[in-house]
Amino acid sequence: MSLQMISVILGSLTIASGLMVVLSKHPIRSVIYLVITFFFISAMYILMNAQFLAIVNMIVYAGAIMVLFLFVLMLLNLNKEMEPETTRMSLFTAVIAGGTLFLVMITALRDTFQYGKGYVQVPVQDAGLVEQLGKLLFSKYLVPFEISSILFIAAMVGAVLLAKREKQIID
């Protein structure tokens, strides 16, 4: 099986599971389909020889963020009876928002057909490995890397402050 075949199959599976996220009526199942989608994306990374990214994608998205999603949904216990009724207005806005997103995606797709060559562009043999990635992050992309870490710290401090706010009022 050629690389191209594998990538086509993986791509269609990714899109299929992504569609299931939206089409599935049950919120918990949607989350599980989303986890599966992340797995397929990880597989794509491995196909491009970026094993580090693949595993980090699995740990961070599938392993941490989606667990929190699932956590919240399980506690909310959503079901058919509790579903809020959709008004004509909300339907209308949803169609417009979705249509705009679709337009953006179509233009993006058009660009890839225009500028992209072939399906998969396998990067230089070991570009995705940890050593190369680390060297790049600490030389060429040092400033963006540090700025994003400052952003992370700011977000963390903000989260802690928000969580602690009630206690401060009591004091």
Binding site: I32, V35, I55, M58, I59, A62, G63, A64, V67, L70
Partner: peptide
């Protein structure tokens, strides 16, 4: 190993 551990919660 950490990836698998984090999936184990599911």
């Amino acid at each position: 190993v950490f990836g698998v551990v984090s999936i184990g919660v599911y």
